[in-house]
């Protein structure tokens, strides 16, 4: 089972102890300040040095922040476009890795599979076997319909700020991406773009294809030649830049998974974005 390390740049408010920095004061290693023994009558944390320096001669105790858990949420796009090629496999691997990592970190994990509506839902829980179950379940997954249900997942996400993995291919209009990110703003959204390099690498140097979008049903004719393939690759480059710029405005840049999922890279992503 693959796993990665994640971290957040904000403080959890969860009272349950966990792995992440939180605003809750309690047993921890992070020093927050001093208080009088009267206020916090815990003589074990008496700070003699601070007490001696106190001009009022009061006894000071050290205060620490506890580490809390955070909810980890996965909102996965199960629309028809995610069913193509290796995407289901990647998706299931990714979801399982997140679930397992959450378990190993000691966080709660919840999953929402969405296409037109929410089709697959695992509420927040702490479970070891969920990772395996997700892995098997998502490979078959009902990949159909459009992604529009993602705009309506807000109420299902809970009140606490969560680390939210938004897994999709983001093959829809940027305005829709923006609308989605706006609605998910209460949470720490990690957009994960599942792409396949085959999408811009045509199988032949010369040729033509009639393409249709399985979600919208739009059709178009595509003539492939070396020059049009360069244009195709360019279109995806532009798209990537636009996505990065857009998501950065809403917090984190997207994490791109192209063809293969490497958990280390995800760890590195968190190191880079939460430095």
């Amino acid at each position: 089972m693959e796993e990665f390390h994640y971290r957040i740049p904000w403080r959890s408010r969860n009272v349950h102890p966990g792995h992440h920095r939180s605003q809750i004061q309690g047993v921890g290693l992070e020093f927050r300040g001093h208080a009088t023994l009267i206020d916090y009558p815990d003589p074990r944390k008496l700070d003699i040095h601070a007490s001696l320096h106190d001009p009022f001669g009061q006894h000071k105790v050290k205060l620490f922040s506890q580490t809390s858990l955070i909810p980890i949420l996965v909102v996965a796009d199960l629309s028809a476009s995610m069913g193509l090629g290796t995407k289901p496999k990647l998706l299931s691997r990714l979801a399982a890795a997140i679930a397992y990592s959450a378990y190993r970190t000691g966080d709660l994990f919840g999953f929402l599979g969405v296409n037109d509506r929410i089709v697959l839902q695992y509420p927040l829980r702490f479970s070891k076997c969920l990772a395996l179950e997700l892995k098997h379940r998502l490979e078959k997954g009902p990949f159909q319909g459009k992604h529009l249900g993602m705009l309506r997942v807000g109420p299902y996400l809970g009140r606490q700020r969560a680390l939210l993995f938004l897994i999709s291919d983001f093959h829809f209009a940027l305005t829709e991406v923006e609308a989605l990110l706006t609605r998910l703003k209460p949470h720490d959204v990690v957009p994960v773009a599942l792409w396949m390099s085959r999408e811009w690498q045509a199988p032949a140097r010369w040729g033509w294809a009639k393409l249709y979008d399985p979600e919208t049903g739009h059709r178009r004719f595509l003539w492939l030649s070396p020059s049009s393939q360069a244009k195709l690759a360019c279109a995806f480059c532009n798209r990537r830049e636009q996505l990065i710029a857009l998501c950065r405005r809403y917090g984190r840049p997207p994490f791109f998974i192209e063809d293969e999922f490497y958990p280390e890279k995800l760890t590195q992503y968190f190191l880079e974005t939460c430095a």
Partner: peptide, 9 residues
Amino acid sequence: QLPYPALAV
């Protein structure tokens, strides 16, 4: 027709 998800791109 070939299914191709990225027509929007």
